[in-house]
Design a protein around this nucleic acid. Structure first.
Lengths: 154, 154
DNA sequence: TATTGTTATACTCTATAACTATA
DNA sequence: TATAGTTATAGAGTATAACAATA
């Protein structure tokens, strides 16, 4: 600790953030390694992210998605190519700008995205239901948008 | 929503968990992609995790660390080999069991692990200080152990 | 036989660099 | 020149399979 006891202002403004940062880093890494273990046919993390963006924001280009997810256009292109090959997204050349290709969710893609019973979500949801109190689940639900904001802030 | 309004029991026990699960999956993925972008010389996520385990639990074997982090022994071995090459951990053959190799943190490793001013933690901590209210930081601090528990539950 | 650890190989996700086509 | 997208290549982190040494 680098502050005197009773220094409430420091406590509130500065004190804990690097401890919280270090703890977050560890828990995120651990969770990630578990979440990444996929069943064949399931959506991977980046696939899930791309489909979710298309569902939330409607049809858009690969480079726009890359900016939203903060990865390189090439990485997003690879993810989208896999999704297109499986019929989960469709590509539409932009008639007004020959360089652009607009991606949209197909019905299949929407169905798979919204299937809450897919193995991965079931497993996570089951753990939340079985091992966490309702208050704890609510706390996690409140923390989730903060995590997204944090990702956008760094 | 798949339940009637006013169904408090469903709300508490089951209703939200798959929504929370899906939202967590997205925010974890986004955060990960940001956290992973390393400066040269910084600790990677798995390196940080291994050093933290050694610091918390004291010297132990590679396979014990692999179980704690829920990755394969081979993956942990590769991470530890990199850490050893940089002098952050030391290997000690077990005189009582020729198969075992005990790993321990070196002073250099401890110093690097505890350096809260490393670029990665600074960046995260700065974002927490600048873009989040003290209440939000506290909420994240409370959520962190739940995330760890969740990782251990799936 | 079981356990600890290593080596070999491959897959996913990401990056940078270099290219083509279009504006 | 600038932008959208693709192709080529590389590196990190993970996995499984096969092996050696030790118990």
């Amino acid at each position: 600790m680098t502050t005197e006891p009773g220094s409430a202002e420091l406590d509130r403004a500065e004190l804990d953030t690097s401890d919280v940062a270090a703890a977050l880093r560890e828990s995120i890494g651990l969770l990630l390694r578990r979440m990444r273990q996929q069943q064949p046919g399931e959506l991977t993390l980046p696939e899930n992210a791309a489909l979710t963006r298309l569902n939330r924001g409607g049809p858009t280009t690969s480079s726009a998605l890359a900016k939203l997810e903060q990865i390189s256009p090439q990485s997003m292109g690879a993810t989208l190519a896999g999704l297109e090959a499986r019929g989960l997204v469709a590509r539409h050349p932009d008639p007004e700008d020959g360089r652009r290709v607009v991606l949209s969710l197909t019905e299949t893609g929407l169905r798979i995205l919204q299937d809450k019973r897919n193995a991965r979500n079931q497993q996570l949801a089951a753990a939340l239901s079985a091992r966490f109190t309702p208050d704890e689940v609510r706390l996690l639900a409140r923390a989730t948008p903060l995590l997204e904001r944090l990702a956008q802030s760094i």
